[in-house]
Computed example of a mutant assay.
Amino acid sequence: MATLVPTSARHPQGLIPSGQLWLPRASLSACLRGSMVRSTVGYHLTDEQRINRFPATPLCSLSWWFEGRSEALVADRPDTMPGLHSPREAYPGRWVLAGPHTRPSSSYCAAPTHGMMVMFMPDALHLLTGLEPEALTNRVVDAQTVLPRDWIAMCEALQTQPDDAARMDCLESFLEPRWQACRPAHALQAQRYGDWAVHLAQRAAVSAPGRSLRQLERRIKRWAGLPLRELRGFGKAEQAFFDAIVAGENQGSVKWADVAASAGYSDQSHLCRATRRITGYAPQALYEGIHGDEAFWVYRIWAQ
């Protein structure tokens, strides 16, 4: 079954446990990137601490709430991150499906909340459901209006499971036979974004007649929802993220020029622009938020 990643011993003082990251069983590693579970039930949070920050992502996600609920925070301007007093919008359904996002997003939980977000590789979701990730890009939709009927039954069954381990088992038992029936012959096992983008380009080159650059780009965008150039950008940003986390743990501080160079950016300014575009924050502000702000729990889970 899925593997629960242990919570880091270096949990920031003054913050509640970030949540749990479940990694899929090996047979589903090319289908799922992971599942994040977060519960604030039983903890006292200030209003500011009820904000949740999410980066832009090439992944698709399917989300459940078992207690409480979240609302989307809407930024006043495209170049700013929303705050506590920003407008709020209810998510569109009991279970929501989100496509790849080219911009960071934020949500707010007014009451104690327990929820789960399952992160799918977009090309895998396309094979499993027939949905076009491109049509879901930068959108969050009511899952009951777009998913096949057997998926809705699975969503209902998962909702009624007694605990998170049982929920993951329910999900994986549903997905495994369907994924084995439709998975590519040579599916990639390691799912770092950079490796996945390369593999996707190789699949596009051999999957159908027509190998012009335009035809390959169309094929990739149909499978993944984003152009290859943007997928490669996510790969570099992910590499920089993990390099910064390791540098901070080993050295106590981060030299951003070194991180930029090791991840393949032209210079530190290039890294700063990319980080702002994906997360809404400059690298140092993001690093400080991960280590001291409740709202950045998603990043802390990913760094475990």
Score class of each variant (00 low, 15 high):
residue 145 T to G: 01
residue 269 S to N: 14
residue 166 A to V: 03
residue 89 E to T: 14
residue 138 N to V: 13
residue 10 R to A: 13
residue 101 H to Y: 08
residue 1 M to H: 10
residue 188 L to R: 15
residue 39 S to M: 03
residue 145 T to N: 03
residue 24 P to S: 01
residue 136 L to D: 13
residue 182 C to W: 06
residue 5 V to A: 06
residue 108 Y to H: 12
residue 143 A to S: 06
residue 254 V to T: 15
residue 153 A to N: 08
residue 102 T to M: 09
residue 168 M to G: 02
residue 9 A to G: 09
residue 145 T to K: 12
residue 233 G to H: 00
residue 224 A to H: 09
residue 164 D to G: 02
residue 142 D to L: 01
residue 41 V to R: 08
residue 88 R to Q: 13
residue 75 A to S: 15
residue 231 L to K: 04
residue 252 G to M: 03
residue 197 A to C: 10
residue 177 P to H: 04
residue 241 F to N: 08
residue 279 T to N: 09
residue 274 A to W: 02
residue 180 Q to G: 12
residue 243 D to H: 06
residue 55 P to R: 15
residue 63 S to H: 07
residue 65 W to R: 09
residue 240 A to L: 04
residue 274 A to N: 08
residue 230 E to P: 05
residue 31 C to W: 09
residue 219 R to L: 02
residue 269 S to V: 14
residue 179 W to T: 12
residue 125 L to I: 04
residue 165 A to P: 11
residue 240 A to G: 08
residue 228 L to M: 12
residue 31 C to D: 09
residue 61 S to T: 04
residue 294 E to T: 00
residue 70 S to M: 11
residue 96 V to E: 01
residue 179 W to L: 02
residue 269 S to K: 14
residue 222 R to S: 11
residue 215 Q to P: 08
residue 274 A to L: 06
residue 266 S to H: 14
residue 31 C to K: 07
residue 112 P to N: 07
residue 221 K to V: 07
residue 267 D to W: 10
residue 223 W to K: 02
residue 209 P to D: 00
residue 261 A to E: 13
residue 9 A to R: 13
residue 97 L to A: 02
residue 103 R to Y: 12
residue 296 F to G: 03
residue 261 A to P: 09
residue 241 F to H: 04
residue 58 P to K: 01
residue 60 C to G: 06
residue 295 A to L: 00
residue 186 H to F: 10
residue 76 D to Y: 13
residue 187 A to L: 11
residue 49 Q to E: 14
residue 171 L to F: 15
residue 15 L to G: 01
residue 295 A to K: 03
residue 151 W to L: 01
residue 186 H to N: 11
residue 144 Q to H: 13
residue 128 L to C: 10
residue 178 R to V: 10
residue 292 G to P: 08
residue 225 G to Q: 06
residue 114 H to N: 10
residue 177 P to W: 04
residue 276 R to A: 11
residue 215 Q to E: 15
residue 157 A to Q: 12
residue 145 T to W: 02
residue 193 Y to C: 13
residue 213 L to M: 12
residue 22 W to S: 05
residue 180 Q to F: 00
residue 192 R to W: 06
residue 94 R to C: 00
residue 230 E to W: 03
residue 200 L to I: 14
residue 273 R to Q: 15
residue 64 W to M: 05
residue 137 T to R: 14
residue 87 P to K: 14
residue 18 S to T: 04
residue 178 R to E: 05
residue 198 V to I: 12
residue 266 S to N: 09
residue 258 D to Y: 01
residue 91 Y to W: 10
